[in-house]
């Protein structure tokens, strides 16, 4: 009985995750699909090939990937020391530090975006790649810090002490011991940051001012265009990289989860 429920739940879960993707695929490759036909009556790859040959789409794809990768890297660099301190040290004002780091996730994104817009206008950063990347860091940092501080709250500094008395310099310890111990956590945090930056529309629009055309920007303009086939084709392009990345890291994370459990 319990097993059946679990199987049913699994099917349901996969269903709601995969059903929209199936719909994208059907729409993206359909030429004629009218009511009441259950499946498209004729198929074509024209829309997809046209989209892939469109320089706006390909540059959007590369800009999105580039921004998301840079943002997740910077999130790790900035979030790492903050997370280590918040996760492993007790100090006065710790709660307030937490609050400040998490404020962007609580405040309505539009308010954050408008505020940043005004500030960046004054600094001349609007419409620049730099400005967009900086703006993306606002929503990604809380997630990186949260993930990594969890890692550091269970982190045992004695591994570093051991390496130190064995003769390692602090710099060497950071790269050969610390980073390797928290590596799985880094991967998860980077994934979070990547995905949040990847799907960012509002901040890109406000700060990029229409000059930085990421995939979500193109997708929104296609949606207002109203052609379901090109919407589906773009959506398919939009979900593919994250799905590939998550699928690739899932195996690794499961394996590492095991070694981490053995370790503690």
């Amino acid at each position: 009985m319990k097993n059946q429920a679990a199987v049913f739940f699994r099917i349901f879960l996969y269903g709601i995750l995969i059903a929209p993707l199936v719909l994208f695929v059907l729409y993206a490759f359909s030429e004629r699909w009218f009511f009441p036909a259950l499946l498209p009556t004729s198929w074509t790859t024209n829309i997809v090939t046209r989209m892939l040959n469109d320089s706006r789409t390909t540059s959007g794809l590369f800009i999105s990937i580039g921004i998301a990768m840079l943002v997740s890297f910077l999130s790790l660099v900035i979030g790492f020391p903050a997370a280590r301190t918040l996760g492993s040290r007790v100090f006065r004002g710790r709660q307030i530090a937490w609050l400040i780091f998490f404020l962007p996730t609580v405040v309505p994104p539009l308010a954050v975006g408008m505020g940043l817009n005004i500030l960046f206008l004054r600094l001349g950063w609007t419409g620049t790649l730099f400005g967009v990347i900086l703006a993306h860091l606002v929503p990604t940092l809380p997630y990186t810090i949260f993930t990594l501080s969890g890692v550091f709250s269970r982190y045992d500094e004695n591994y570093e002490h051991q390496a130190l008395v064995l003769g390692s310099s602090r710099l060497r310890i950071f790269f050969t011991v610390t980073l390797r111990l928290v590596f799985p956590g880094l991967v998860v945090a980077a994934l979070f940051a990547f995905l949040i930056s990847w799907s960012q529309y509002l901040l890109t629009l406000l700060i990029g001012g229409g000059k930085i055309l990421t995939l979500p920007m193109l997708l929104f303009s296609a949606v207002s265009g109203g052609n379901p086939t090109s919407i589906a084709a773009l959506s398919l392009l939009f979900v593919t990289p994250p799905v590939i990345i998550i699928a690739a890291s899932a195996r690794f994370l499961v394996q590492h989860g095991k070694t981490i459990r053995e370790q503690y």
């Binding site: 045992d156 004695n158 051991q162 008395v165 011991v177 390797r180 111990l181």
Partner: peptide
């Protein structure tokens, strides 16, 4: 001066 703790702290990786 080498220090040994209660736990071995062998590097798990």
């Amino acid at each position: 001066a080498i220090l040994m703790f209660q736990k071995a702290y062998l590097f798990p990786f």
